[in-house]
Structure formats: structure tokens, C-alpha cells
Design a protein around this nucleic acid. Sequence first.
DNA 1: CCATTTAAGTTTGTATAGCAAACTATACTG
DNA 2: CAGTATAGTTTGCTATACAAACTTAAATGG
Lengths: 101, 101
Amino acid sequence: MDTSWHNSIDKVIHEPARLSMLACLYVVESADFVFLQRQTGLTGGNISSHMSKLEEAGYVKVEKTFVGKRPNTSFQLTEPGRKAMEVYCDRMKKVLGDLAG
Amino acid sequence: MDTSWHNSIDKVIHEPARLSMLACLYVVESADFVFLQRQTGLTGGNISSHMSKLEEAGYVKVEKTFVGKRPNTSFQLTEPGRKAMEVYCDRMKKVLGDLAG
DNA sequence: CCATTTAAGTTTGTATAGCAAACTATACTG
DNA sequence: CAGTATAGTTTGCTATACAAACTTAAATGG
């Protein structure tokens, strides 16, 4: 079994809170701030700071608009983000698969 | 899909370097310091500090002896450690499985 | 119409964590 | 005996996650 893969896993994605958000974005194509907050159970502060990191990484695109008179921030996965998720999932599945089949 | 599992994943195990070491211990039943170092590609300092954490968590048992005149430190998974690995793997597989089948 | 509360988000403060480099101690080797 | 290698720990720095405080603006209500 290979056990030297530890530096090949994407830490931006690996963080549970972010993986949770990304998992959500992976399936819905677009989600706004409040939806993600409700869905993941994360605090607003967490969503905000983690999203900054995901944006920096180029994994999500952020769009700020107004809905009625209230601000609305919506997120969606970029292509690189989707690709990175797939790579991450494949690698983790392989690691975990090796342990139990 | 459930996307609020982020706080139910065991961070002690989740850390890639430790997961790598644990994956190794999971299959070999007992491994010494140098073996783990070679196997995982981690530095001695990393093995040392991460193992301290795993020991604190009760996931590994540490045994210090001498082989010939040289010190030899060997590690093995405890039962709680093995159990925790299984729980971790199941949860992660579920998360990842939900994303791609 | 002013005061209060609620909502959406961001910034800040703190404690923790990971990693690499430096260090300790001991054993070989020439 | 001097120098190098081995086994392992400690230290110092940087980065990170999380919660709490803050900002801005809109709804509510007396």
C-alpha cells in the first residue's frame, strides 16, 4: 500500500467546513450565502472567511447583487474548482478504499 | 444530500500526515519509527509530534525499547484507534460517495 | 419619526496546529 | 579521538480555523 500521498491532497478542499460547502456547491450549481449557512450549519463568519479562501484558490466565483433592497451574495463552483473536487475525491477514495475495500 | 457533517469528522485522524501514518499502522499491526518515516516520507520531527498527538488521543500505543544498543520506538494501533479509523473511513466514504457515486 | 431589532456579511482576536530546522544523545568509523 | 550518522525531541515560525464583535442597512413598532 502507498502511504506517502499526504502531500498530494488539496488542503483547501480537505478542510471539513470547506468540503461541506463545496459538496453543496458541487450539486446545486449556485447557492447564496444564507442558503449555504442553513444547509451546512456554519456561522456567517465561517462562510465568509472560508469562501474568501475558496475564491483566492479560484475554486468559486462570487456574485454580489441585491434582491429587493437586501444584499445577496451567491456562489458557484468554477471549472477548476469542479476539477479539483474530482481529483480530491478520487485520491481520498483511493486512500480509504485501500483500507477496507 | 446532507452537508452539515463537518463537525462530526475526527480531526485527529483527518490530518493527512496522521492519516498516512494511521493507514500504515492499520494494516501492519506494528511499525517502528524509522519504518514509518521511510514509508510515509515524513520527517522525524513530524512523526514525533504527530505521534504524540495520536498517543494523547489514545489511538496508538508507543513502546520504547533498545535493539542492540540503539533506541527503537514502535507503534501500534489501539482498539479505540482502530475503531475510530473505521468510523472516520465510513463517514468520509459516505461524504465522497454522495458526490460521485 | 425615532428607537429597536433583525438580517447579511466582514473584520478581528485568540488559540491551536503543522512543519522545518535546530538540538540532544548515543553509536559507529576511520 | 575526531567526525559522521542515527534516533528521536524540542523549538520557533507561520498559517489557520473559529467565535465574537463589528458594520451597514432594512424592517418593525410605539
